[in-house]
Design a protein around this nucleic acid. Structure first.
Lengths: 161, 161
DNA sequence: GAAATATAGTTGCAAATGTCCACTATCTGG
DNA sequence: CCAGATAGTGGACATTTGCAACTATATTTC
C-alpha cells in the first residue's frame, strides 16, 4: 500500500512505485528496455539490429576464431536452439561461416567473414560509445562501480570464475 | 580484437568478451535475461507471469486507485497500444476493472478487484524477496549503491524529478 | 466560438523472439 | 561395447512489441 489520495493521479510525478521503488530487479528490467531501445537506434540499419545476441556473437566470433555455438549460447544466456537460429541468421547475412570441427564432428567452428570483420570493427566503437553516452549523467566513478558489480553478477551467473 | 590463440576455445573460461567486457549496456541487457527468468520461476503460475508490465501494473493500480493506462505506459516504457492490451489482459484475468473517467471521457480509470488486491498482496513480498535473493551474493551496501544509481537513471529516463 | 492541435485509447498488421521438446549424430568413460 | 552426456537441428507455438491509422474528446489559439 501507499499514500493514497482521493483523486487519481494524473501525472507520473504523483505516483510512487510501491515496493518496486526499492526493487533492484525492477530497475534492471526497466533499464534494459531503455538501453536496448537506445542501442537499436544507434545501430539502426547495421545488420545487427535488435538484441545482444547478434552483437555479442559477432564480436565473439571475430575475436575467437573457431568458437562454437554452444559456448556463445552459454554466454548470451540462450538455449542451443535459439542460438543455432542466430548463427544461421548471421551466416545468411554473410557475417560468419560455419565449419564442422575436424576433431569433434558434433561441433561447429565459427569464423568471421570479411564482411563480418568489417562490421565488427565498425560496431565496436559504437557499442562502447552508446553505453558511455547513455549513462553519461552518472559519474564515471559510479559507472565503474555499477559495471564492477554487474560484471561480478554476470560472471557468477554464467559460471565464470 | 583480443588475445587470439591458435586453437578455438572449448570452454567459456577461455573466452573474453571483447569490448563488451567493459560495456555497461551489455551487462544490463544480459542481467535482464537472468533476473527475468528467475523472477518468472518464482512467480510461476501466479497469473502475472512474464514481464515487468503486469507486476508493475498490478501494484500501481492497487496503490493508486483510478490511475490511468497512459501513466502506466510511461512508467513501464511501453507505448499506449501495448499498454492497452496489457490492461485488457489483466481485466480478462479479473485483476482490474476499467471505468471511463467522469471528468475526461477520453480517460479510463483503473481499479483493482478483490482478486487483484489479493494477488498484489501476495506478490509484493515475493518480488522483494526475489530481488534480494537473486543479488544476495553482492553485499547489501553494494546492492544499495547499485539501486541508487539505477533508480536515478530510471527516474531521469521516464522524466521524474 | 471555430479551427487547429494535442491527448487517450483501440485495432490491424506484422515481425521477431524465445521456449519446449523431440530427434540424430557423435563422443567419452567405465 | 554400452550408457550417458554433449552438439546441433527442426517443429510448433506462444508472446511480445512496435508502427500506423483512426476515433473521440480536450485544450489552445486566434
Amino acid at each position: 500500500m501507499d499514500a493514497r489520495s482521493k483523486t487519481p493521479p494524473t501525472s507520473i510525478t504523483e505516483v510512487t512505485l510501491d515496493v518496486l521503488e526499492d526493487t533492484l530487479s525492477f530497475y534492471i528490467r526497466t533499464m534494459n528496455i531503455a538501453v536496448s531501445r537506445d542501442l537499436d537506434d544507434k545501430l539502426e540499419g547495421l545488420d545487427v539490429a535488435k538484441g545482444t545476441g547478434k552483437i555479442t556473437t559477432l564480436l565473439l566470433v571475430d575475436s575467437h576464431p573457431g568458437i562454437r555455438p554452444s559456448i556463445i549460447a552459454e554466454l548470451i544466456l540462450r538455449d542451443r536452439s535459439a542460438t543455432g537460429r542466430l548463427m544461421e541468421q548471421m551466416e545468411d547475412h554473410g557475417l560468419i561461416t560455419r565449419r564442422q570441427s575436424s576433431t569433434d564432428s558434433r561441433v561447429q567452428e565459427l569464423y568471421i567473414t570479411e564482411k563480418g570483420a568489417a562490421l565488427a570493427a565498425r560496431i565496436r566503437p559504437l557499442v562502447t560509445e552508446q553505453s558511455r553516452d547513455f549513462f553519461k549523467f552518472i559519474s564515471p566513478e559510479e559507472q565503474q562501480q555499477l559495471m564492477d558489480i554487474l560484471k561480478r553478477a554476470y560472471r557468477r551467473i554464467v559460471g565464470l570464475p
